[in-house]
Design a protein around this nucleic acid. Structure first.
Length: 282
DNA sequence: GCGATTTGACCGGA
DNA sequence: TCCGGTCAAATCGC
């Protein structure tokens, strides 16, 4: 696996390290200040750390997601092939298994822009399952899809199942997604671990239905000092939601507690989707 | 007008 | 035959 050594990759790597350090400091400060309070914010900081870990790992892996089944065509001629593709994935085919990843998160945001293409009531499940594919599927042939469902046990948690890898946006995002983390959380190359790190998250954070966002963003950090950006963002979190309770509470677009993990700092404040109820109207 | 979402229909695997 | 996943026409919102 060749590492990315382009100047841009180097810059991104550097920025990610900075951001990660800032997040680590924040986490430490919160821990020192009040070990029992601000749990939600600490969790947020920890997630930022994990995101940076994965982005860095991805960068140094130099991995770019494979094309996957991007060649899916419209219903016209290749319907049978297409269906077979889907079936293979649905029933846990070999390639599908390799690209499948299940996460439980407090929000459905993950840094990519998704387009909802279906919703289905699932047997013996209170909550419908929502189907999303990458907005850039048509644009760039990005094969990534995901399914989002509220957890049966804890309706405030999203159970998100990812299929395929993003080929549409930043290498960081694509590679992060491509880098399958095993359940044991082991063997993660180039992980500078400043704090907690779990295996189940990857770079994320932009809105779900940010359909009106015109720019492709992925979760690549753009220019500027990540660490500097982090401070005001976190302050906002604290002010808005001390405990970062997810649930289906209404929240405004600027509410970082609902906006979850705004890895894309530049567009964080534009986030329009950040409410569970936006997804699950029940 | 364009692009995203909704939702009923369709398809294939189990 | 049932059920889950996707399609695509209709609808909505900017």
């Amino acid at each position: 696996m060749a590492a990315l050594v382009t100047p841009a990759a180097s810059l991104v790597s550097e920025l990610m390290v900075q951001g990660r350090q800032s997040a680590a400091v924040l986490e430490a400060l919160l821990q020192d200040a009040s070990p029992t309070e601000h749990a939600g914010i600490r969790e947020l900081a920890a997630e930022i750390l994990r995101c940076c870990d994965r982005a860095l790992a991805a960068l140094h892996h130099g991995g770019v997601a494979d094309g996957g089944d991007s060649g899916r065509k419209r219903k016209s001629g290749a319907a049978a092939h297409k269906r077979r593709d889907k079936r293979a994935r649905a029933s846990g085919g070999e390639a599908a298994a390799a690209a499948k990843r299940v996460e439980k998160k407090r929000t459905a945001e993950d840094g990519f822009i998704w387009r909802k293409y279906g919703q289905k009531e699932i047997l013996n499940n209170k909550h419908p399952r929502l189907y999303f594919r990458c907005t850039y599927k048509d644009d760039g042939g990005c094969p990534a899809t995901r399914q989002v469902q509220l957890s049966e046990d804890d309706p405030s948690l999203f159970v998100i199942t990812y299929f395929g890898h993003h080929t549409c946006c930043a290498d960081v995002a694509a590679a992060a997604a491509a880098e399958e983390v095993n359940d044991l959380g082991e063997t993660r190359p180039f992980v500078i671990n400043f704090g907690s790190s779990s295996s189940d998250d990857y770079c994320g954070g932009q809105s779900e239905t940010s359909s009106r966002l015109s720019s492709r963003n992925g979760c690549l950090l753009e220019g500027g000092n990540v660490g500097e950006e982090l401070r005001p963002m976190v302050a906002k979190v604290e002010a808005a939601s001390p405990d970062l309770q997810p649930t289906a509470e209404p929240c405004s677009s600027g509410d970082a507690s609902c906006a979850s993990l705004p890895w894309d700092w530049d567009i964080f404040n534009e986030t329009s989707f950040d409410d569970v109820s936006d997804f699950f109207p029940f």
